[in-house]
């Protein structure tokens, strides 16, 4: 059963890679990276159970966290065109829009 799950996750990863390459908009690519991160979490879990050592689930949890924070960072870049401290003026500009 885990073999089928692993193959399904890998096929899904390939489909996401195609979407990441083809684009066409930036949001497709952001979503593709986010979904790919989720698939890596799933794959680590499935491989752990496949080999009978589910100890690596902690790493899968860490990946889920990094994936979330990374997506937030990318979307913040979209919104404010900057990653670090968002200056008050750009927030004001955003509200005025």
């Amino acid at each position: 059963m885990f073999v089928v799950a692993a193959i399904a996750v890998i096929v899904a990863m390939l489909l996401v890679l195609v979407r990441l390459y083809a684009g066409p908009t930036l949001y497709d690519r952001v979503l593709a990276v986010n979904v790919f991160g989720t698939h890596t979490v799933l794959l680590i879990g499935v491989v752990g159970f496949l080999t009978g050592r589910p100890d690596f689930l902690d790493i899968a949890l860490l990946y889920a966290l990094i994936n979330f924070v990374g997506t937030i960072a990318v979307l913040k870049y979209f919104r404010y065109r900057a990653i670090g401290d968002v200056s008050a003026s750009s927030v004001k500009r955003e509200k005025a829009r």
């Binding site: 790493i59 860490l62 990946y63 960072a73 670090g84």
Partner: peptide
Amino acid sequence: AAVGAGISTVLMLG
């Protein structure tokens, strides 16, 4: 995962 996928993606976006 922390350095490659996390920090360096953000740094390259910056």
